[in-house]
Design a protein around this nucleic acid. Sequence first.
DNA 1: TACGGCTCTGAA
DNA 2: TCAGAGCCGTAG
Length: 718
Amino acid sequence: MSRDDAESEEPQGQPEQLALIRETVREHKARRPRAKPRTWRGAELAARLPVARVLVDKGLAHLDRFFDYAVPAAMDEEAQPGVRVRVRFGAGEREGRREGGGLINGFIVERRADTDFTGRLAPLAQVLSPEPVLGPELLQLCRAVADRYAGSLADVVQLAVPPRRARVEKQPSARRPPRPQPPAPGGWTRYPQGPAFLEALAGKGAPRAVWTALPGPHGWADELARAMATTLAAGRGALAVLPDGKSAARVDAALTALVGEGQHVLLTADAGPEPRYRRWLAVSRGAVRAVVGTRAAMFAPVRRLGLAAIWEDGDSGHSEERAPQPHAREVLIQRAVTEQAAFLLGAHGCTVEAAQLVESGFARPLAADRETVRAVMPRVRTAAEGDEGRDPAARSARLPSMAWHTARDALERGPVLVQVPRRGYVLRLVCERCREPARCAHCAGPLQATGEGTALRCAWCARETPEWRCPMCAGTRLRGSVIGARRTAEELGRAFPSVPVRTSGGEHILESVPGRPALVVATPGAEPVPEGDGYAAALLLDGWALLGRPDLRAGEEALRRWMGAASLVRPQGEGGTVVLVAEEGMRPVQALVRWDPAGHALRELADRAELGFPPVSRMAAVTGPPDAVEALLTSAQEAGLPEGAQVLGPVPLPVVEPGRPRRPGDPPPGELWERALVRVPRGSGAPLAAALKTALAGRLARREGPVPHVRVDPLDIG
DNA sequence: TACGGCTCTGAA
DNA sequence: TCAGAGCCGTAG
């Protein structure tokens, strides 16, 4: 039946009545939501502190300030700092007449005796709930995050305070349970500084550590939980931020095993809004002192925070997508400093940022000695690509023969992990002879092929390099290969016909696999955790693809992925072996063989310092329509870019490939946008953000057309 | 955010 | 000439 048929299906004889009913419903709908709340004009005001300073829930840069409202006497009691309110906002006072302006949500940040506003204050329209959800500490944190990222306070508050659920607010939170007993140090005794770190936590100190976790599929989650439990036992709160729900659930379970239920909550997106708000409220009310969660939990208002911890800070899951796109590591550092809490950054690998925290003296390294590392790490061997030997089985699987033999032997003893590259990596240009990345002579940005011919253009400053010559080996030929057909699970299955093959990646991610012999094919980051003592072996087949990505972090990221997989493999004493298919001489390959992620990160850091890259410098990306970008840069200059600021570009932005969801800062379909990078010396991040913020606010206030997107610490410079 | 005020349009 | 639609500017 077509739509038209359905519409003509009205009962015969009463169309007028139906029309009448429809009309009434429409009128009703039109009228009901417009019902104006009482205007409090002329109403009696609160006797004490009759002014409420309000943060209006609007993330516009030029409205990033507080507004004062009068507090009607009837709201005096509930209108406390931190509560959600509704206020009239908009439409000014003209010729003595004030009317209109829409109702908008906000938060009271302060009750005051007076105002510096010269006009007449509008009254608060409504106190939405007496629950103080935006306390002074959380407000201060949000302000600091907004300032660091050139964002507005309202935007950050929106990330930090979950939307209200009235039903949940009415329920009281359970009473806070008594302090747990301090746990035994457990696996921390494997690290020379481990027990001392726990003792500092127990003594309410604020130690800061970059923890290079020993390999092993299960140790780290328990150790992280022990650090939290130690903090709880000392009477302070603890917060751990994990890159995904899966790892958060593991730490949550480990913490439950140590301190039981009731001491902590798990804050992840997959819990659903209502349970999530219930847990968040329990934290906000102080009924729960410990939080394990994914990135939104970085703002959790844990009382008397004693430990702020992050696991795998290199994982992209730690970077918030919504404006102003703060990173969990930076937010937790901020909290550790202002709330005088301990800071623990743990990972199997080591990011350049983590190395810098150590280098700058902010944090101390917390790592095991070489002997311990060697005892628990798997044996790591490299194999050259295409080194298939004469072995027909290896050839058919397109595996280097050593990888094939390793897998075959290991399959007698347990599961074997095979890490394969994901589709769609774009490769960067490197010297064909020595694999040195091709860089711009002017700003050291990455060079890109322009298409036809040999012209190379810098992806940062757009300058062309007509004749490139490798600064390391004087080579003149470049390599930038394309990903061909990938080894598939089927090919492997044919090479090992008697073994079950399981796959994990993309939409279909396996959380864990049994400890029985099986081939487990996974893309990086989707490796299932093996039950029992780990994989018998791992084959890392994606070396060249990971290393060839056109990203500043390619090496670091490759090593992180390899270490993530290799950490799931048994110690070499138990036969655990990792075969990495990659060029032996490359730095990240060497770092894996020696199991030295911190050393690798330090060397990367030195390189970045030499080239002026983050995190040694601070960068911000400005993206938008060409004239908007240019105008914003000009007004940022006028607002006062810090000494030594350098503008790179702008360059045209690649069009977002169809199908990929648009992220903030991406051009809308069909529009040609540009991106400029602003680089300042380390330590000048604050004035850089301030200048950009001023420029944004000016452009918004003057309504000069489209407003560019600003991102501090852009991820994909590269 | 949603209101008042302004301009623009089309029909009488 | 006027009513209505739609956009703009505003912000306690």
